[in-house]
């Protein structure tokens, strides 16, 4: 039986798709059969971040409406043999998603996969609620910034009330916090909410902290998930996130200001 993971945030532009691509790639690279689904009907982007945009023929809505089989629509990742991608529809309206249809797709995927990663769209509309409804685990992506934290708090409330697990009185979704675009320098200057500040407000276990990094934009420019950039801090932080998801206990890295020598501290800018 597959484990279903939703990557959600409420607010847009905080790194949901980057995180979904990293998580799915990381799980597949560790030998788990993984599928990643883009739920952003009308504004598909996961295919771009994964670098398979030219290979999309059928999408999630085609499968739900019976116009294509799941096997036809799944795109096999060129880098990770264990990874498949199911793109979002680009043209149709959001009403094309139905709970029943999504449930059927997930059931079918679960037969041949270990993990299913659901990349949620921003907002709290249908696509977002569909992406989270069937989840077993949730990664709440948050920037250390007021509007993002507030929206995450709203999302946490919805996760614990409007999911299959909540409605059927099952064990609740395991929700964990991922802080992205973190800048220890700005935190040290008091210009940015710290990890502790965000956790104080959201009260979730921390699954990772991704530092602000140029490599994220470089990676999406190239259509290669940033987790594959093992030289970058962000790539390494995502590797840690995947290991933590799989149960390893690792200290959080890249969360403090890099140490300068005494000379640098006294005279450096």
């Amino acid at each position: 039986m597959a484990r279903i993971i939703v990557v959600t945030s409420g607010k847009g532009g905080v790194g949901k798709t980057t995180t979904s691509a990293a998580l799915a790639t990381g799980l597949a690279a560790r030998g788990h059969r993984t599928a990643v689904i883009d739920f952003d009907v009308g504004l598909r982007n996961l295919d771009l971040v994964m670098g398979c945009e030219r290979r999309v023929v059928f999408d999630l809505v085609n499968v739900i409406q019976g116009e294509a089989g799941l096997r036809q629509a799944l795109i096999r990742d060129k880098r990770q043999p264990n990874l498949s991608i199911l793109a979002a529809s680009q043209t149709r309206d959001k009403d094309a998603l139905s709970l029943e249809g999504v449930g059927k797709v997930l059931d079918e995927l679960a037969e041949s996969h270990d993990y299913i990663v659901c990349d949620s769209p921003a907002g709290i509309e249908k696509g977002a609620t569909m992406a989270m409804y069937f989840a077993d685990d949730a990664i709440v992506v948050t920037n250390p910034e007021v509007s993002s934290v507030r929206d995450s708090d709203r999302m946490i409330g919805i996760l614990s009330s409007k999911s299959r697990r909540a409605e059927q009185n099952l064990e609740p979704i395991r929700e964990r916090l991922l802080i992205t675009r973190y800048s220890p320098e700005r935190v040290a200057k008091g210009e940015m909410l710290s990890i502790e500040d965000v956790q104080d407000i959201l009260a979730l276990d921390l699954i990772g902290v991704i530092p602000e990094s140029e490599s994220v934009l470089n990676a999406s420019n190239a259509g290669v998930p940033v987790i594959m950039d093992e030289a970058s801090n962000a790539g390494q932080a995502y590797q840690d996130m995947v290991d933590r998801y799989l149960g390893e206990e690792l200290p959080h890295r890249f969360t403090t200001v890099g140490k300068k020598g005494l000379f640098g501290r006294l005279f450096g800018g």
Binding site: V149, V187, A188, G190, E191, L193, D200
Partner: peptide, 20 residues
């Protein structure tokens, strides 16, 4: 560090989130 804008942000968030 508490004199920066982050402290203000946290205070505003705590009120807002409680209200939400």
């Amino acid at each position: 560090r508490k004199s920066g804008s982050a402290a203000k942000a946290k205070e505003r968030l705590q009120i807002l989130v409680a209200h939400d």
